[in-house]
Amino acid sequence: MRKAYSSLESLRGLCGLRICLAGSRPFKREVNSVKSRAKRLGLNSLTFPRRMYLFAAPALALFLVFWVFPLIQMFFYSFTNFNGINFNYDFVGLKNFVNIFKDGTLGNSIRNTLVYTIVMVGASNLLGLAIALALNSNIRLKTLFRTCCYIPALFSAIVVGFIWSYVYMPRSGLLVSLITLVGGDASKLNILGNHKVALYGIALVEVWKGFGSTMIIYLAGLQTLDENLLEAARIDGCNEWQLMRLVKLPLISATITINVILSAIGGLKAFDYAFIMTSGGPGKATNTLMFNVYRIAFNEQLMGKASALSVISFFCIIIVTVLMLYVMNKREVEL
């Protein structure tokens, strides 16, 4: 009896399997083989014909003429002594590269840019994440706090530069006045004039302007979290700190990747505050890669040398970005 039953069961199972085989799977296989045959024969899809590529033409044309071609030209100029104006230039081989290496421009600006990027990425992400976590709990006046943190991002870099020039100003600036008010002696405080801290000073300005957008992205990431998962973790006895470290952070790892990469790209392009607030000074303390490229090309009129520096920064930026993407993608958690 029992045997009969089980064989009946298995028969039904087999039938089911056969129906399944006759139904969707061969059909799918058929479609796929038609698709691949169509591809091999070079047939054009009716709904999405190759004519569609024409839609990309305007964007592609702009991109090629004003982005890719100038980039190639820049590579070419890096081997010449072109000054940006006179087209009677000569090839000088690797002289530009040797020069920027020898006079310390390269090492200095790479070091400055990396320090700036690390400070900026670290601070704006930690701050953004902390505020987002705080705002994501049960908070009153959430919109007001969020708006306050985001407002600096609306200002133009030049306005931000002016405001912070005043904050840092020696003798009568905001910081000095505040320290004097609480009874400290700030007569010697000159952040932008001190070659040890000027770089951190301008990185802080970038953090002030940028952490609001980072925070908004983190907040959006945190709001996608499944409340049931957090509930389950709480029932399993997680305290708030464990909940954050073991559940929340791994679940928003994709958001963390995006934020870190976006702010790192911004940091590697650092130019604005070195240009507006310090002009690269004091000495060479805030000469970032992009500010140096600009300074050499426009003030010193040495286009060849500026191009050589550009070429090296181009590769630096690509290497750093790809490395970061690789490392962070590996750490991401799949759900």
Binding site: W67, P70, L268, S310, I317, T321
Partner: peptide, 17 residues
Amino acid sequence: AGLIVPSQMVVVPVAQM
């Protein structure tokens, strides 16, 4: 790929273009 190239780098060739 265009996302990661800073624009200060290419501004002189672009001006020529």
